[in-house]
């Protein structure tokens, strides 16, 4: 039966399948094997994109692009967002918190594989090969992919659809409830922030950035002219002149060659 299926597909589809199927498998295995969580997430994204292309190949373009937009674009991006905050060097802890968890995990995994294989085998047996691309069936389906999905989503499956959207909304609101922290006191506005900044005892100006070779960040430090003398305009009449040592006022020889001496 597999051989019949393989003969029924076009060359382009076969080529795309044999390129993408190994990639999807590499992604799936890589997700489990990757040491770094980010690499695992990337592998999962690779598998999801390959699956989306498979959907598109199976004449379900809407499903394929929604898979890319929603799963790869939004959900995996949120995963990455969280994982990036953990730091680059975080690794999985291999410590067993439950006694015998590896044994039970192995048993459950074998059971799951058995269930999936049985279910898949049951679903695949007795399938017939259709001529040409599948066409939507139903009252108002027509030949439009989107219309057919909308038709079944909003008529046959309207109740599960509504239930799922309700559950998702509850989950989102619940997450907000857990993450919400009540603000202590009123929000500090621009005016309060500015008053605090200029309050006595606080330095109002910005600190010099790293790598700036300033001898002082005081507003009373006068500016120096290129020859090392003090620029008169840079001195405020309200601020007392500050003492500068001879070493501070001397040219710094930053040019390598001092022309003024």
């Amino acid at each position: 039966m597999i051989a019949d299926l393989a003969q029924s597909v076009s060359t382009g589809e076969a080529v795309a399948f044999w390129i993408l199927a190994p990639l999807a498998l590499i992604g799936a295995v890589g997700l489990v094997m990757a040491r770094s969580a980010i690499h695992g997430a990337l592998m999962l994204a690779l598998t999801m994109i390959c699956l989306a292309v498979f959907y598109i190949m199976q004449s379900a373009p809407f499903l394929g692009f929604v898979q890319i937009m929603v799963y790869t674009g939004a959900i995996m991006m949120l995963f990455l967002f969280v994982l990036m905050l953990f730091g680059r060097d975080s690794r999985d802890s291999m410590f067993e918190t439950l006694r015998g968890q590896r044994f039970f995990a192995a048993v459950l995994a074998i059971g799951l594989v058995g269930l999936l294989a049985a279910g898949l085998g049951h679903a695949v047996t007795g399938l017939t090969i259709a001529d040409g691309p599948p066409t939507a069936t139903g009252a108002a389906a027509g030949d439009s992919n989107v219309a057919a999905i909308a038709e079944s989503l909003f008529t046959t499956y309207i109740f599960p659809f509504e239930v799922v959207s309700g559950v998702l909304t509850v989950a989102a609101v619940g997450a907000l409830m857990f993450a919400h922290v009540a603000r202590k006191g009123a929000a500090r506005g621009q005016k309060e922030a500015s008053r605090e900044r200029f309050a006595p005892g606080n330095y109002p100006g910005p600190r010099p950035g790293p790598g700036v070779f300033a001898t002082s960040d005081s507003t009373a430090t006068p500016a120096l002219l290129p020859d090392g003398s003090i620029a008169g305009e840079s001195l405020s009449e309200h601020v007392p002149a500050r003492e500068l040592t001879a070493a501070e006022t001397a040219p710094k020889h930053t040019e390598g060659k001092d022309l003024h001496r």
């Binding site: 430090t221 309200h238 501070e248």
Partner: peptide, 9 residues
């Protein structure tokens, strides 16, 4: 405004 002196000097 009284400017605090540079601690280094």
């Amino acid at each position: 405004l009284s400017v605090p002196p540079n601690p280094r000097s």
